[in-house]
Simulated assay, not measured.
Amino acid sequence: MRRRCSRARRCAGVPVGPNGAEPLPLRNVSTYPASIPVLLSPEPCGPTGPFLLVLVPSAAEHAEQRQAVRDTWGGGTPPKPPETLQNAPQMPETPRNAPKTPRNAPETPENAPQTPRNAAETFQNAPQMPETPRNAPETPENAPETPQNAAVAPSTRTIFVVGVPPSRAASRALREEWWRHGDVLQGAFPDAYGTLTLKTLLLLRWAASRCPGARFLLKADDDVFVNVPALARHLRAPALPRRLYLGRVHWWVPPNRDPSSPHHVPAALYPASRFPPYCSGTAYVLSRAAALAVLAAAPQVPFVGPEDVWVGLCARRAGLAPRHTARLAGAMRVPLDGCCYGEVLFSAHRLRPDDMRKVWGVLTGGGNGCGALERALGVLRCRVMAARAGGGW
Rank of each mutant, 00 (worst) to 15 (best):
A220F: 05
D337Q: 06
L380P: 00
E177R: 12
A60Y: 03
P212S: 06
F225V: 14
E145M: 14
V301E: 03
Q67Y: 00
G187C: 08
L373V: 14
A214L: 03
E138F: 13
V311M: 08
P335V: 12
P212H: 05
R66T: 05
W206G: 01
A112L: 05
W179N: 12
R2E: 13
R248M: 11
G187W: 03
Q148H: 10
A120R: 14
C314I: 11
G338N: 12
D308W: 06
P271W: 05
V69R: 06
L286E: 03
Q86S: 14
L218K: 02
A151E: 10
A387P: 00
G330Y: 05
P259Q: 08
L351K: 15
L373W: 12
Q86K: 14
G49N: 02
W251R: 07
G378Q: 09
P116K: 08
G194V: 00
L269Y: 14
A267E: 14
S41F: 00
S35A: 15
A297P: 02
E176K: 14
P102K: 08
A34V: 08
M1D: 10
W251D: 03
M129A: 14
P95Y: 06
M332N: 00
S209E: 01
K80T: 15
S347D: 10
V265R: 07
A230H: 13
A230N: 08
P144D: 11
Y278R: 05
G319A: 10
L53W: 01
L53G: 01
L380F: 11
D223F: 07
K100I: 12
G390L: 11
V29G: 06
V162A: 09
V309E: 03
W206Q: 01
E343L: 05
C5D: 13
N135G: 02
R4F: 13
D71S: 15
G365W: 00
P133Y: 09
A98Q: 06
Y270T: 04
N118C: 11
W251Y: 13
G391I: 06
A98M: 09
I159G: 00
D71P: 01
E121A: 14
R352S: 13
E107H: 07
T115D: 04
Y284T: 01
A348G: 13
L218A: 02
L217C: 01
G20V: 12
Q148M: 05
E141S: 13
L198P: 01
T101G: 11
G392W: 07
P102C: 08
D222P: 04
I36P: 02
G46M: 04
